[in-house]
Design a binder for these strands. Structure first.
Ligand SMILES: [Mn+2]
Ligand SMILES: [Mn+2]
Ligand SMILES: [Zn+2]
Ligand SMILES: [Zn+2]
Lengths: 140, 140
DNA sequence: TATCCATATGCAACATTGTTGCACAAAATT
DNA sequence: AATTTTGTGCAACAATGTTGCATATGGATA
């Protein structure tokens, strides 16, 4: 995606279009999958846009906060970030490779979900997590 | 559960019934939810069974390896451990509190899953993660 | 019951991932 | 251009988990 268009995306929402944000969004938008902080960092460096570690953490947080990206957690305890559309309110299923941790957003929830995997991916198990509030947190 | 019975559980499987393992299993079995390493550590200490941090990590790994517990990851990037029966091959849904991270295993997958939440818990969102192998890892 | 060996434990050092505080730089506003 | 607001970099810290190695111990064997 063109940097001008990305700048536009940010300005339309009345957000500051800094180089760090534009470059980071660019990386996320051109990746076909969710990227870890470290992967984004490397990708930025490769494109000559080295960013401070902390700045990148804050930039990613910012993008999530502003709904320009979403964050997901896998089995390896590292966040992954994706700029893909959120679809049905973040409730879309994800694919997560048990070998390397590669993570990507799948399509909308599907009764024949296993069939919905992209070509080349193999199914091992499905995990459904309900997020909400426990009794203690409901009262607080 | 009685310590003698827990020792029996281990010995039936030809595993060494050390005090660390028995005490750890006891903690997991009496918790009504999945516990973090830290929570297990505190619970052990409270019962006068202080364990080295590393030993506890290794003990929990051991229990998972031997299928006496299972491990699950939430949004806060810390493992949680539960001694509950694995039910349908680990594929059962979990509840995870967005406020405090409290995590527990729910019953079998259920079309009216939301209704299946225990009393006092409130629904926010459902996340379905398919685990498997990506094309690269399928070939390796 | 005493001996022995595989392995479980404790300790220190390290790795990874993410956070906080603060000074300085860069955008936006006037 | 000056001022205000916000973003960035750096250093220090925190939380979680791992590795290597010396020592202790469970449980088998004699
Ligand atoms: Mn997603
Ligand atoms: Mn479970
Ligand atoms: Zn993979
Ligand atoms: Zn809670």
């Amino acid at each position: 995606m063109l940097h001008m268009d990305i700048q536009q995306m940010l300005k339309e929402r009345r957000l500051r279009a800094t180089p760090a944000r534009v470059a980071t969004l660019d990386v996320l938008l051109s990746a076909g999958r969710a990227l870890t902080h470290h992967e984004v960092e490397e990708s930025l460096a490769a494109a000559g846009n080295r960013l401070d570690r902390v700045t990148l953490y804050r930039t990613l947080d910012f993008l999530v906060e502003e709904d320009l990206a979403h964050r997901l957690s896998g089995e390896d305890r590292t966040w992954r970030f994706s700029a893909q559309d959120k679809r049905s309110g973040h409730a879309h299923p994800h694919f997560c490779c048990s070998g390397c941790g590669a993570t990507l957003c799948l399509g909308d929830l599907n009764p024949a979900m296993v069939v919905g995997l992209p070509e080349g991916y193999s199914f091992q198990q499905a995990e459904l997590t309900i997020r909400g509030l426990c009794p203690a947190c409901n009262h607080a």
